[in-house]
Design a protein around this nucleic acid. Sequence first.
DNA 1: CGCTTCTTTGATTCAACTCAATGGATGTGG
DNA 2: CCACATCCATTGAGTTGAATCAAAGAAGCG
Lengths: 254, 254
Amino acid sequence: MDKSEQIIDFSKIKANCSNCNLQELCLPRGLNAKNMEKLDHVVKGSRPIQKGQHIFRGDDGFLAFYAVRSGSVKVYILDESGEEQIIGFYFPGEILGFDAIEEHKHSCHAIALETTTVCSIPYEKINEISAQIPQLQDQMFRLMSRELSKENKLLLIINKRSAEERLATFLVSLSSRFHKLGYSAKEYNLPMSRQDIGNYLGLTIETVSRLFTKFQRNGLIDINKRTLCLKDLPTLHSICNGFSEKGKDNNSAA
Amino acid sequence: MDKSEQIIDFSKIKANCSNCNLQELCLPRGLNAKNMEKLDHVVKGSRPIQKGQHIFRGDDGFLAFYAVRSGSVKVYILDESGEEQIIGFYFPGEILGFDAIEEHKHSCHAIALETTTVCSIPYEKINEISAQIPQLQDQMFRLMSRELSKENKLLLIINKRSAEERLATFLVSLSSRFHKLGYSAKEYNLPMSRQDIGNYLGLTIETVSRLFTKFQRNGLIDINKRTLCLKDLPTLHSICNGFSEKGKDNNSAA
DNA sequence: CGCTTCTTTGATTCAACTCAATGGATGTGG
DNA sequence: CCACATCCATTGAGTTGAATCAAAGAAGCG
């Protein structure tokens, strides 16, 4: 392991939920000023984490949740033979690390896809103060519950959908998440590689690449490297739902 | 909808965690006598639920967690077109319904695979008393966290494993769960249909059937209808991990 | 500028699916 | 008790969507 692979040292940078523009999306949602302040005492910020650096690894001693403040994060698990399975991608306002509680260690790993900052909340602390703040406990349950629902849907997509439907669903999902953050729903940058997309969706990199080409040929998207423009959202939506007439190749021009 | 499809009316049968033989596996794990009693006040039991009857549906008004006391339960979601995706199977001591919290309704449905009894805990009540009992809050977080880890692993199996590896993993997982309940790890009954197994694992019923036949031909299992005997657990384990030499057909005899 | 990493594209293969038919078990009503 | 229907499972034949194998182009980096 070279230096660039070392785990971030979370310095004692004070975070500040009270003034954070993501508070409505994030953990402190629904808290009053007084409780928000309590939360501020246990939440720590991070220095910028460079692309490719780990936020945590499964064998870390330090158990915590992490809220993405800026940038993006990929979370993955490894099987016995070291094969990687990406579990999810996380953007600002989203929280990761809920898996850690059961076995008192993270069962997964988290790595920054670009320069990223996060806030961290040690597991014991959240346990403590969410017992004192009912709304926080509620929000914790909600967030974990949402995480479960998300995985359920992912399972359905992977088990029941074609490669084309999976990729369209992925692109549309990213679009809506970026939109919620106030960015364009039509144009965004993919922070992850084709490899990562394929791994997440249960496809090979070649299939992902071919599908991007096909979507572009059919006028659904414009893609250039990692810059993506969704040119025909209605059709992309219909592909997600399995009505993919226009997704099909009618390339009589070929 | 005919009468047999009506949702169970959860009568006010008092449950009794204090005397339940599943308490070490279930929600009350780690609670002292006094707190166990508090829990007893909010947990209700059910009359037996017949095979094929729903325990809850997504559109139920009644939001609760359910702990399986006897029998078995299948949990599934439906997509827009009504297609079913099974999310999990649940056995005694296991808890379902964690998905309900976020959107204030269950995003999934639960149906009894055989005559089943469950205990139910309304969501507001658990919220209330887990704020009072730190160990219970902790146990809730743990159970949800475990659920997430389970789904992560399922995702890996479905995305990265062959049909053969998936089925072997499924059979071995059931074996270990039954074993924890004090039953044989080598012989058990499958409470679900081939269809259900296939749906869960992302395979067709024909593929599942062919694999059962193949495993039997290779001496790994004995299967008769839904009665299963795992004759060669070591080899089954090695198939799970992708070292499936003996799983391969060397049927020179054919 | 050479090296590596990422992506695209083409040719070919194969694991699992689809379609089709049969068999066994269970249930129902005459 | 049998005839018939239904449901579930098995087995076979043929197809196909995505994987694998292979090669080359484009971009990033020290």
